[in-house]
Design a protein around this nucleic acid. Structure first.
Lengths: 340, 340
DNA sequence: TGCCATAGCTAGACCGGTTTAGTAAGCCAG
DNA sequence: CTGGCTTACTAAACCGGTCTAGCTATGGCA
């Protein structure tokens, strides 16, 4: 015989299918004695629920979806995503909720996946990353009516829960630190310009520069890849009056930039200070180890998972949840600028 | 009205549910005219199949499972997994097959997940990574009767398809290269000792050392983490007669080792040559860029996905599939050893 | 003309659960 | 003793598909 069904258990225990269902789901309708007997039989027969059958009745799919829209080959590098995934899994696994993961090429494809998974009842909710400026995904999620947690914010509107950290404050802490040790020409290798956090960081740098009266503070948008990070660094360092400090929006770019500096014979931190906006093992294992903004991405993943599980239980209106502002970890890639 | 069902379409098109099912699945039983009409109605009503309902009838779940057994916090670092994932996704997405991903703490938990997903009809097949020496997961998979693709081999027995590259030949190419440029004392920072590929690499190094008459060739097992990579490197470099070349089983460890060398004032490649068994952006962006074995992990992922999809269609007996042997990419982290 | 094969379709069982309506028995109060 | 209420349970509908058995109309062929 194949996998046992509740009908098999019912027959074995001498009760009806309904009674078995009640017993297995811990709901009233059977006596304690009968419940114990049914549970014992189910245990003996090694019964497991058939998730599809459950989902058919309109119940949970016990899965949540995460769709990442980035060119497939570039995902590999970002420790951020792997860390986030790990944190998500840690919580989801504990609740026996599976994670449906998909990597697509662009936002249009991403939205298509949301529609498909929702209509196919594959998932109970979604996790959104890389919040964009006027994000076209939000209205779609509202329309689909499934709960979602959005990484990024703060923001109004929509029924999703927003989880965010204060990028502006974080950028200010970097610039304040650099200015305090004497830097007056700071460059910023930013990420994709249509991401909300990219824009917030760029604006924060500009504001801080004005307030502190810096000589120069330029933001250069990139696609987050090591290639563009390296190329932009090369351009910056080739200028006659080059910046004395560069802030990188990701650790991958920072490490690439560090490599370019070494290659061009620019000493770090002697002639150039480097700060990474993202901390990870990557930032720690290179030499010199990078001064970086430390946030606990694993914990972020855990928080996202918790919030989503909560939202699945009681669909409330969208809320905001602020994570601690990342704190600057000073390592050996920063020092006062060269004299003169 | 909620989501339209085939019953709604049937009513609208004036046919029976069965006819709709035939039409939508492209099987005989309806005339071309009727089929076209049904398809048009389905299109108009924006119908999507309910995956649970399909799965209930014994059909496909249209999902495959990947379970990774490593401590959650350490996954984040390995570019290998992210690259593999990207390759998998590229192919799976194209076939509208979802990927169920789960990270667990150990092999026992991994096996438990296999059992659960199989009995819950959540997935149609599995992908196994980190093949172990006498792998306890293989008999379980045979018992569950679901197709699987195993990364690692070659191997007999089991009904799984094995996909592997020739680790032995790869290690030999590294040692031959190092010996050819004059190295006589080579160390090897290996991975977890119960992995098959770890053992094969250790054995290959020993054999090559004997054949080439090297002065020393030692393999040190680690847990793949940057911490152990750094610690073991420190120990090796502190010895009175230290190795002139170190081969690292992963790029993360190699980069960590590079950092330790820099910190201890050991010049790379002047005094120490470094080779990474895994190539990735990581190996390229550090300075000096690392000589490494290049294999296309993304392509590996694509191949795995293709093979698994094929196995889903026609469950054949287990087979072997050999990937191209990784080729050594010489960069700037290797040179002849210091004189004397 | 009569018979059979076949195309084209319908009705309904079925998958494995959940859930609702209904029923029998037990208990208590009046 | 009876009516009403609760408890413990059963029977059956239901979710949205797939699939098989069977029915009807048509065409081909002897």
């Amino acid at each position: 015989m194949g996998r046992p069904t509740i009908a098999d258990i019912a027959r074995q225990a001498g009760v009806s299918k309904g009674a078995v269902s009640f017993a297995l789901n811990g709901r009233p309708g059977v006596s304690e004695a009968t419940r114990a007997r049914i549970l014992r039989v189910a245990e003996e027969m090694n019964w497991r629920p058939h998730s599809a059958a459950r989902a058919l009745g309109g119940a949970r799919a016990d899965a949540v979806g995460l769709v990442i829209a980035r060119p497939a080959r570039t995902i590999g590098v970002e420790p951020f995503f792997s860390q986030l995934l790990s944190g998500l899994q840690a919580v989801l696994s504990a609740s026996s909720v599976a994670l449906h993961l998909m990597v697509v090429e662009d936002t249009a494809a991403e939205i298509e996946v949301y529609r498909r998974w929702a209509s196919e009842h594959r998932v109970d909710g979604f996790i959104l990353v890389d919040l964009q400026v006027r994000d076209p995904r939000l209205p779609v999620l509202d329309e689909l009516g499934l709960p979602a947690v959005v990484l990024g914010g703060p923001g109004k509107g929509g029924n999703q829960l927003r989880i965010w950290a204060d990028d502006r404050e974080a950028m200010l802490s970097i610039v304040d630190y650099l200015a305090a040790i004497g830097h007056r020409r700071i460059a910023h290798l930013a990420g994709l310009p249509h991401f909300q956090h990219t824009q917030r960081r760029i604006r924060a740098l500009r504001d801080a520069s004005r307030r502190l009266g810096l000589e120069e503070a330029v933001s250069v948008p990139t696609d987050f890849s090591d290639a563009e990070g390296a190329a932009a660094t090369r351009t910056l360092l080739s200028r006659p009056r080059r910046p004395t400090a560069i802030v990188y929006d990701s650790d991958v770019m920072a490490v690439a930039g560090l490599g370019v500096a070494g290659e061009m014979g620019v000493a770090v931190p002697g002639e150039l200070s480097i700060v990474s906006f993202d901390d990870s093992v990557l930032a720690r294992i290179v030499h010199p180890p990078l001064t970086a903004l430390s946030r606990d991405t694993f914990a972020l993943g855990e928080q996202v998972a918790h919030s989503l599980l909560e939202a699945l239980d009681e669909a409330g209106p969208g809320r905001d949840l602020q994570m601690p502002t990342p704190r600057l970890t000073v390592r050996e890639s920063t020092s006062p600028p060269p004299a003169g």
